[in-house]
Design a protein around this nucleic acid. Sequence first.
DNA 1: CATAACTTTCAAAATAAAATGAAAGATAAG
DNA 2: CTTATCTTTCATTTTATTTTGAAAGTTATG
Lengths: 177, 177
Amino acid sequence: MKALVPCPHHAVTRSKSKFIEAWGTLGSSWGVPRTMAQIHALLLVSAGALSTEEVMESLQISRGNANMNLRNLMDWGLVEKELHVGERREYFKAPKDAQYIARQVAVQRKKRELEPMLRVLQELQGVEGADADTSQFRGQIGDIYDFALQSERMLNLFISSQQNWFMKALMKLTGKK
Amino acid sequence: MKALVPCPHHAVTRSKSKFIEAWGTLGSSWGVPRTMAQIHALLLVSAGALSTEEVMESLQISRGNANMNLRNLMDWGLVEKELHVGERREYFKAPKDAQYIARQVAVQRKKRELEPMLRVLQELQGVEGADADTSQFRGQIGDIYDFALQSERMLNLFISSQQNWFMKALMKLTGKK
DNA sequence: CATAACTTTCAAAATAAAATGAAAGATAAG
DNA sequence: CTTATCTTTCATTTTATTTTGAAAGTTATG
């Protein structure tokens, strides 16, 4: 992995680098491209919005790469543009609310992956035939459909759990450390 | 993607192929290698246990590939060996209980991905400094830590939801279709 | 121990994914 | 309309992942 080179203008402390790398690793094991996750992490731990230039410098990546990943992050609803009056340059920031992040990711994954699977399963439910093999197949598909539905339900639960009193309590607790 | 070639001895119907491909696609978007997911799907929709040979034939993959992915699937607890008396050859089957599958996957992901992240975050909580930037960073890490804890809680909930009356009811419902 | 029947390994090849950077495309301001 | 500034695109290159298949390893059996 390429080392993060601190830059004089927008210093990324050791801790931040560590976090950025960890977030990148976590992301890539969840199917989110490493660099995309790292840019997200960088914006998460930056006080203000950063320009493409600053992102490039901090993470030592090319312009095209930065641009493309910033665009993807915006598609996912994880990053927003910020325009400064009297300036041409665009700045980017990540909403700092972790609950919101979680929600966005869940919504996106649901839309992109679960729903297509549900469609396929629904289609396969209608398979013909009455022999032992076919009926075992139909049973299996039914089970998997249930599994998918359950997953969807979990996601919905997750999405709607923002106001849960338990989470609030947990946050307070861990906040005190 | 390589087409699934039906083989005379262990015919994979059109529907099954379709399901196998869909499962493979879904898997790869969740970070599970395509072939691993496909083997899993194949075993899920097969009535009996299959040998390495049969898996190779059905999916048109090499011996080494089949062997390696079957091993990984066993590591994940998604596939089991089955020995037939008087036979040298090993057979493989996937537990047909979708709830069990979900549980296994959740447990594995939790162990492999969430826990390392929690460790990093915990470590970063102890970062020194009192300037504005550092304190914004600490706050952000705290939020993310909460997010990770929340995710873990969701996974635990998922894992323990096997007996949930609602799921049972849902299964009945969708079973009737 | 020798052979046959399987299983596992692993270096090399193939494939897929991500990054680069120069060129082309915008857009504001003069 | 021109220039300066900034953004986007995309053909290539680089890097990472997956697959292959032949060779080595293993274990039952006579």
